[in-house]
Design a protein around this nucleic acid. Structure first.
Length: 584
RNA sequence: GGAGGCGUGGUGUAGUUGGUUAACAUAACGCCCUGUCACGGCGUAGAUCACGGGUUCGAGUCCCGUCGCCUCCGCCA
């Protein structure tokens, strides 16, 4: 069979009546009128209608066709009569009259239909992913992913970056997420780890003088899955030498703008707005704020100081913050109580209806007084508490209200940088300081001297790129001075000996002339998800895992044969029976 | 580890305060149909209502437990 003449159905829209074409694809829908048969032939590019009249030798076979059969059609393009033109499909102006029709493969009735648009159970979709991926929406998603990959490679190559691959079988490192371990057969009892990111290798590449590196790289983190998190995910990983923060940000903007303009067709500015971590927390209660809508967290310190509401003045006196969300809609008591509970907040509230104040604060205010606190047609939701954790609860409330009231504009997309993250955070569970980003992140020059004296005050050269409330990229300028690196290690409780043992290869490399360097990594699946307008990254990954970590298509993860384990020197302890204590 | 939602023919759903033979759409099968494009018409078949236990004269419906899927919190340098 010579397929070289085969046309894609989408090409047919431009062809002239009478042209002979060879097509092949799947029967999408089949319409049998007794004396006349229509079927839609689907390939990757779209669909085209094939019409078979009773005098056509192919008629008997055409009448027998069923959905998802694979067929080959040789035939002529015919213009449809005006009344028969279908403006809803790209090839709706024409149809194909077959001179030859052949069935290349019959198909059993599919458990999920590629021609249906409705919701289907996700487990079933993944069980039959090859059918799910036949759906035009899923094919568009994979095409968007492909275009994004090619655009990223092109833009970075234009900017002088080399794509360098780094190993998947590497060493387990402390800090960060749980590692996936791979047992070594050659060295029984020892394990490789799959990389959580190529962080250390890309820094070594900078020491190696590569200067500009990128990689489309699979990363592995053994944590619980979410709509935007898989055990295995893809980063566009970038690192540059002889740069400071502004250089990396400018490069990331250049790449991001090219991606969303070319692939998604969005209109975005050449450079993005910025917030410091402090501003993001204070205004939005999040380090990845959705800035597509307003309703910022307002500080009520000045108003509450007046003592109009005694318990708020008391809270201030006790060193708490008093803040509010000015919700643009009048909420019922029930709504407020429900939102307060789901946000874990004790909320006071105030609204004005027909000149009467309503809500738990109503007794402290008349309508005029409420107006002075900013209450108009909506509801003022007041909370008080301490620290970023409290602000995050308010931020969660802000998002909940926005979703419920539909305040988030559809079809609008907004990037924002978050900078000046804290370098360190206190881990109460382990009773020690730990790196917010990773231990190689450089402190701001002006804050570095406080690493020992005021660790919580030290800001870092970390920057995160946020799109519509999703963290889509994050990076930092790295420490390239040995003494600073040692001070950070010491602060997070790694002695010189421990640091030497765990990161010896990096520290040793740094002895031989490390250039100043920094980089950024894009969460590629997430970015594609947002560009494709999908609710989960599973929709832009060809073969994702369920949120249980299982793959219903292959059955992974599975048990393995005893001799496989033996060869690796591994014995498996059976999981504890339900309701019984672990025998170990 | 925790919270919530869901689980009914192949698929997607309905099923009232517990009350005959579990309904509808679609897919499947058969017959009819010459301009449909989510084709249409008539008919046939297809469900131990996720699983286990309980309450009750009687459970798809109420209660308890288990499992699975989804979402969120924890977790994710």
């Amino acid at each position: 069979m010579d397929w070289s003449k085969r046309k894609a159905t989408a090409q047919l829209a431009e062809m002239a009546a009478g042209d002979t074409v060879l097509l092949a694809g799947w029967v999408h829908r089949h319409r049998h009128h007794g004396g006349l048969v229509f079927f839609d032939l689907r390939d990757r590019s779209g669909v085209v209608q094939v019409v078979v009249h009773p005098e056509n030798p192919a008629f008997a076979l055409a009448a027998r066709l069923r959905p998802e059969w694979v067929v080959e059609v040789r035939g002529q393009i015919a213009l449809r009569e005006t009344a028969a033109v279908n403006p809803k499909i790209a090839t709706g102006r024409i149809e194909v009259v077959p001179s030859e029709l052949a069935v290349l493969a019959e198909a059993a009735p599919p458990p999920i239909s590629p021609s249906d648009e409705g919701e289907i159970d996700e487990g079933l979709r993944l069980r039959h992913r090859y059918l799910d991926l036949r759906r035009p929406q899923m094919q568009r998603n994979l095409e968007i992913r492909h275009l994004a990959l090619q655009t990223a490679r092109r833009v970075l190559t234009e900017q002088g970056f080399w794509e360098v691959e780094t190993p998947n079988l590497t060493r387990s490192t402390p800090e960060g997420a749980r590692d996936f371990l791979v047992p070594s057969r050659l060295a029984k009892g020892r394990f490789y780890a799959l990389p959580q990111s190529p962080q250390l290798f890309k820094q070594l590449l900078m020491v190696a003088g590569i200067e500009r590196y990128f990689q489309v790289v699979h990363c592995f983190r053994d944590e619980d899955l979410r709509a935007d998190r898989q055990l295995e995910f893809v980063q566009i990983d970038i690192e540059q030498s002889f740069v400071d923060r502004e250089d990396v940000i400018a490069l990331a903007e250049r790449l991001t703008v090219a991606l969303v303009r070319e692939v998604a067709g969005w209109e975005v500015p050449d450079a993005f707005d910025r917030l410091t971590y402090r501003q993001a927390m204070d205004r939005y209660g999040s380090d990845h704020p959705d800035v597509r809508f307003g309703m910022p967290i307002e500080d009520l310190k000045q108003r509450a100081e007046g003592g109009v509401v005694p318990f708020l003045a008391q809270a201030l006196g006790a060193g708490e913050r008093v803040v509010a969300l000015n919700c643009p809609a009048r909420l019922s008591r029930k709504q407020v109580e429900e939102m307060a509970e789901r946000s874990g907040l004790a909320l006071a509230w105030l609204s004005v209806e027909a000149g009467e104040t309503k809500g738990s604060l109503a007794r402290f205010f008349d309508a005029k007084g409420a107006g002075a606190w900013g209450v108009a047609d909506g509801t003022l939701l007041v909370g008080h508490g301490v620290g970023d954790e409290f602000l995050q609860q308010m931020g969660g409330l802000r998002l909940r209200i926005a979703r419920e009231l539909g305040l988030i504009p559809e079809g609008r997309h907004q990037f924002v940088w978050v900078t000046d993250f804290p370098l360190l955070e206190w881990n109460a569970e382990d009773g020690r300081w730990q790196a917010v980003h990773h231990p190689f992140t450089a402190p701001l020059d002006e804050d570095a001297e406080q690493i020992e004296s005021h660790p919580a005050q030290v800001r870092s050269k970390q920057y995160d790129l946020v799109l519509d409330g999703n963290e889509v990229a994050g990076g930092s300028i790295r420490i390239h001075q040995r003494d600073v690196q040692e001070r950070v290690f010491a602060r997070i409780g790694l002695s010189a000996e421990q640091a030497a043992e765990k990161f010896q290869f990096l520290l040793e490399a740094f002895r031989y002339g490390a250039p100043p360097h920094g980089g950024i990594a894009f969460g590629f699946d997430r970015l594609v998800m947002l560009m494709a307008g999908m609710p989960t990254i599973r929709d832009v990954i060809a073969f994702p895992l369920l949120s249980s970590g299982a793959d219903p298509l292959t059955g992974a993860p599975t048990e393995v044969a005893d001799d496989q384990l033996q060869e690796l020197g591994i014995s498996v302890r059976p999981p504890a029976a339900p309701g019984r204590p672990d025998p170990a």
